[in-house]
């Protein structure tokens, strides 16, 4: 699976005035990659994911998966928002089962798959709970499980841990790394948190603001096996500092204008 954005631009029409959210973005996501896109708030991160998900159409440019242009949303590109996208009337297991209920699967097969992802995300004990009974971290895990059970080519994450407290966030970062390695799925994640991007990504793309465009694209040469200790290693700290500088430079140039 290769995801390719070629010269993608996006304008929003705001009461007659056009607002350019993305300008000539070129990104290629290779199979099995964990690509993190960092940028300040308003740099077009959500717009980027919405385009890849097929929920909106770019003003110009093309987005392809294995050469086929994206024409609309589909289960081959699972999407997870920051908060509140679980079905509040469905229990955790029925939330996770949603995508499979739309397919021609017998109940046992569906159950087997749902069980696997509930276990993988550590939700087996709360499978019969309603979303409002879960903690923020559990809700995000359920949203991730719900997307993954459809076995997407690429998992799209829109600041998935942005609303969580620091400890829960670290747990979730370790979990998503684990899931990524266990399932072999490709991940495209956007975040404003540089540390998170460097810790999780095999590659980091820095987005400049106003209009959103690619300012830097760098490989993260850290070991596959990352733990919380990784965050204290000199290599990590150096990488983090250099990405922070890039983001800060982009932010300054935005403010100066």
């Amino acid at each position: 699976m290769t995801l390719e954005l070629v010269d993608v631009s996006m304008d929003y029409g705001l009461r007659g005035r056009e607002k350019r959210a993305l300008d000539g973005v070129n990104i290629t996501v290779s199979p099995r990659e964990f690509l993190c896109v960092v940028g300040a708030s308003g740099s077009g991160k959500s717009t980027l994911l919405s385009l890849v998900a097929g929920l909106t159409t770019p003003t110009s440019g093309v987005i392809t998966i294995d050469g086929r242009p994206i024409t609309g949303p589909g289960p081959d590109r699972g999407l997870v928002f920051q908060t509140g996208s679980l079905y509040p009337w469905r229990t955790v297991e029925r939330n996770v089962a949603f995508g499979l209920e739309l397919l021609d699967l017998d109940a046992a097969e569906r159950r087997r798959r749902v069980d696997w992802y509930l276990a993988e995300t550590g939700l087996a004990d709360v499978r019969r709970s309603l979303p409002r009974q879960l903690s923020g971290g559990q809700q995000q895990r359920a949203a991730i499980a719900r997307a993954l059970v459809c076995e997407p080519d690429v998992l799209l994450l829109d600041e998935p841990f942005g609303a969580l407290d620091v400890q829960t966030k670290e747990d979730m970062q370790l979990l998503i790394r684990q899931i990524w390695r266990d399932t072999g799925t490709t991940v495209l994640m956007v975040t404003h948190d540089v540390e998170e991007a460097v810790f999780l990504g095999t590659r980091v793309v820095v987005l400049a603001s106003d209009p959103g465009r690619v300012a830097a694209d760098l490989r993260i040469p850290l070991a596959e096996d990352r733990t919380l200790a990784t965050k204290r290693s000199p290599a990590f700290l150096e990488l983090r500092a250099s990405v922070e500088d890039l983001v800060r430079a982009q932010h300054r140039s935005g403010v100066a204008r």
Binding site: G74, R77, G78, S85, G99, L102, L156
Partner: peptide
């Protein structure tokens, strides 16, 4: 909520 509708499309609905 819009997000609920959007996410459903991405789940194949």
């Amino acid at each position: 909520p819009r997000a609920l509708i959007d996410v459903s499309y991405t789940l194949g609905a």
